[in-house]
Design a protein around this nucleic acid. Structure first.
Length: 593
RNA sequence: GCCUUCGUAGCUCAGUUGGAAGAGCGACGCAUUCGUAAUGCGUAGGUCGUCGGUUCGAAUCCGACCGAAGGCUCCA
């Protein structure tokens, strides 16, 4: 008879995180119990806690329906009402294999477990292979809701069978659960796909193609401003801008090694006789060819090339998502050719550009991953241990000097070197990689890049790949959600709307607009035959930073009555004073008016 | 790519058992000339995603395709 091994825990004594994890994982057990009752043939996968609840994966004889979720929830409530104790027991491999002989996924899990470390958990009539971490009894499972049904591959691998995953949300109180649902609803309102349509920024066309965003005039204005900002920063820090076209012979990527590593992510080739052309999915090889166009001395280094390059990547259709995952993207790409002892300074310079940009956008909700090779296994990483070590040390040291917090992720490096990625979350909590800085000591050698050293001999440069904001499209998507569409003045596609109160004020409104345009501002006049209230409402919903009301009093005095997007009324201000105010705001790229 | 759900006007959506395609917002026109978040009246706008099938008859049922959303990471 197996021994009970988990003793009573006082939930109140636990850290909230641990307590929630126990509650969520326990709820997953109860879900599995209910599922087995609904469909006795169900094959069970895993049921871990998540950041907002839990899930459980099942292989089932038929697809789940909404009605099933309702039934499962009721059945779970029943178990919870019975306050069934969770009992952990150690069992032998033999016992486990006997119990789950008809449960292939449990047997698969069992194969990875050490003898003596096999435990199971029972509540009521239901027993699951389980490492532990529960509440004492089902009555301690608080407010939860079954949220959605999704497909998920066993162990996340598409070579494995696909299971049905039931997602649940779980919080300690009903109020918190409701707050979570309200927050989801709020997030949907900020979704960049929705805001992008409402503000007339971008669209998609079935006829043009999947994953190819089309930018409307206002969206292109924002794009252009974002890129101009990065261009200005790059010029200021010694980068030279270049341009290398959209199509490249496939042969180049064979030499660089990209074809071997990224073939799946490239559009199929265009064939001309016996030459293949590819839509350019990355710039590095092109920039190396630029480097090779001229002889270089060590005195030229570091040499910093930058390009706003439109790239094409054949992302899987199911992965495409708004502006954050597209097939046509524009990278603010840069390649820095340097000597090995310049790596650390150049990495630090790249870091400072990224930091400056993120700060300008008021962006603080991101994490930094330092991606390192999986030492020992070799595998996809090019074999050059001393170079890897040198590069990893330079990056670590630069990261530490910068004072930024970062996590090291082993095995995540690019095939050509280690890298640091800046990763932000969208409103739905999904993570997207933005800025990136990568060290490359492989490709320059493959593509024959050389410089003449102090010693008069040829040397191979080190290459730094870096993108300040990453892809303009993705960064814009994240920015739209970050600002909820209310861009700071310098970035707003329309910076002010002039609102004539009656038709007779239109000439003055036009005059105001002309003066503002002369000062370089983007201004619209709302000359519709609408009441002022309606025009204000429209400008508010379009998130225009300033509304300038022009009526008799203003026309008489040469002023504008200024309403800020925040709702604040600044009253009548001489036009020249208003211009001075917003010139300052534009100059400093102020986040708030 | 795969799983689930979905596709009706520019947008948000309604459309009963298969029996004459609807609303609000937006657009346009006319009237109104208004002081800080929606003036009134009117008009236009749809191959019901596409193609095929079942049927006397299809937005509705079936199939294929196209597209979109969520998921395929958080290790029993």
């Amino acid at each position: 008879m197996p021994e009970p091994i988990e003793s009573h825990v006082d939930l109140a004594d636990l850290q909230q995180e641990e307590r929630l994890a126990r509650m969520r994982h326990s709820a997953a057990h109860v879900l599995a119990e209910a599922m087995v009752e609904l469909m006795p043939e169900a094959e069970l996968g895993i049921g871990p806690p998540t950041a907002t609840g839990f899930y459980y994966d099942f292989r089932l004889p038929r697809p789940l329906t909404q009605e099933d979720l309702t039934w499962l929830r009721r059945r779970m409530r029943k178990s919870i009402g019975r306050r069934l104790p969770f009992q952990m027991e150690a069992i032998t491999r033999g016992e486990a294999e006997g119990r789950w002989s008809d449960q292939p996924f449990k047997l698969d899990l069992l194969a990875d477990l050490e003898d003596g470390a096999i435990t199971q958990c029972t509540h009521g009539q239901f027993t699951d292979l389980c490492r532990g971490g529960h509440v004492n009894h089902t009555g301690e499972i608080p407010a939860f809701k079954l949220m959605s049904i999704a497909g998920a591959y066993w162990r996340g691998d598409e070579a494995n069978p696909q299971l049905q995953r039931v997602y649940g949300a779980l919080f300690e109180t009903a109020e918190e659960l409701e707050a979570y649902e309200r927050q989801l609803e709020e997030a949907r309102k900020r979704d960049h796909r929705r805001v992008g349509r409402e503000l007339g920024l971008f669209t998609f066309s079935d006829v043009v193609g999947q994953g190819i965003p089309l930018f409307l005039p206002k969206g292109e204005t924002v794009r252009h401003l974002m890129e101009s900002y990065v261009r200005e920063m790059q010029e200021r820090t010694g980068h030279q801008h270049v341009w290398t076209g959209n199509v490249v012979k496939g042969q180049l990527y064979e030499r660089s090694g990209h074809r071997e590593h990224y073939a799946d992510a490239m559009f199929p080739p265009m064939v001309d006789g016996d030459t293949e052309f590819l839509l350019k999915p990355m710039n590095c090889p092109s920039h190396m060819m630029l480097f090779n166009a001229e002889p270089h001395s060590y005195r030229d280094l570091p040499l910093r090339y930058a390009e706003f390059a439109t790239l094409y990547r054949y992302e899987k259709s199911g992965e495409l998502s708004g502006l954050t995952r597209v097939r046509a993207l524009t990278q603010d790409d840069g390649h820095i050719f340097c000597t090995p002892d310049q790596i650390q300074d150049e990495f630090a310079l790249a870091l400072s550009l990224v930091q400056e940009a993120l700060e300008t956008y008021g962006f603080s909700d991101y994490r930094i991953a330092l991606s390192l090779p999986d030492t020992g296994t070799g595998g996809k990483f090019v074999d050059a241990p001393e170079l890897w070590e040198e590069a990893v040390n330079a990056l670590r040291s630069a990261m530490e000097t910068s004072g930024l917090e970062f996590n090291e992720e082993v095995g995540e490096a690019a095939f050509y070197g280690p890298k640091a990625d800046f990763i932000a979350k969208d409103v739905l909590g999904r993570e997207w990689q933005l800025s990136t800085i990568q060290v490359d000591f492989i490709q320059p050698g493959r593509l024959g890049c050389v410089y003449t050293g102090e010693d008069g001999k040829e040397h191979t440069p080190i290459l730094l790949h870096r993108a300040v904001t990453g892809a303009t499209e993705r960064f814009m998507g994240v920015l739209i959600e970050h600002f909820g569409g209310a861009f700071p003045l310098w970035l707003a596609p329309v910076q002010a709307t002039v609102i004539p109160i009656a038709d007779r004020h239109q000439p003055y409104a036009d005059e105001v607009a002309a003066t503002l345009r002369e000062a370089g501002f983007r201004v619209e006049v709302d000359a519709r035959s609408e009441r002022m209230n309606a025009k204000i409402r429209h400008a508010q919903m379009q998130k225009v930073p300033y509304m300038l009301v022009a009526g008799d009093r203003e026309a008489e005095a040469g002023t504008v009555a200024v309403r800020v997007r925040t709702g604040e009324d600044l009253g009548a201000i001489p036009l020249a004073d208003f211009i001075a105010r917003i010139e300052g705001e534009r100059e400093t790229k102020a986040l708030a008016p």
